[in-house]
Amino acid sequence: MSRVLVTGASRGIGRAVALAFATNGDRVAVHYASDIEAAQRTRELLPGEGHALIGANLAEPDAAQRVMAAAVEALGGVDILINNAAVATSPRTEHSIARVDYAHWRQIWRQMLEVNLLGAVDLTYLFSRHLIDRGAGGRVINIGSRGAFRGEPDFPAYAASKAALHAFGQSMAQALAPHAIAVTSVAPGFIGTERQESKLAGTEGNRVRAQSPFGRVGTPEEVAAAVLYLASPEAEWASGSILDLNGASHLRT
Rank of each mutant, 00 (worst) to 15 (best):
T219H: 14
G137N: 11
G48C: 03
G137R: 02
P220T: 08
L81S: 05
G202F: 08
G205R: 08
T193G: 07
A225C: 08
G205S: 05
D26M: 05
L118H: 07
A159C: 14
P178N: 04
A238F: 14
S34T: 14
N116M: 12
G137T: 04
H95M: 14
A173M: 14
L5W: 06
S145F: 00
V4P: 00
R139Y: 06
D154Y: 01
A163L: 13
R146S: 03
P213T: 11
G137K: 05
A74P: 01
T219M: 15
G189S: 10
E49C: 07
Y32K: 06
Y125N: 08
A182R: 00
G247T: 06
A157Q: 05
N24R: 11
V30I: 14
P156N: 01
I108C: 07
F21P: 00
A225V: 10
L165T: 04
Y32C: 05
Y125I: 15
T253N: 12
A69C: 05
V227S: 00
V4S: 02
F168N: 07
S161Q: 08
A69E: 13
A201L: 12
A18F: 04
Y102P: 06
Q196A: 15
A29R: 02
A16D: 02
G14L: 07
D26T: 01
S10C: 05
P188Q: 10
V227D: 04
A70C: 14
L230T: 08
G48E: 00
Q111C: 09
E194W: 09
L118S: 04
Q40G: 15
Q111K: 13
Q65N: 13
Y158I: 09
L53V: 00
E194Q: 15
A18L: 04
P61V: 11
V6K: 01
A85V: 10
H179P: 01
A74D: 04
E73M: 08
D133E: 15
A22G: 05
L243H: 13
G192T: 05
V87W: 08
M1W: 12
F214P: 05
F127A: 01
N83P: 06
G205H: 11
L251Q: 04
P188L: 13
A9W: 02
E194I: 04
F155S: 03
P233S: 08
N246W: 05
P61Q: 12
L245S: 10
I82M: 03
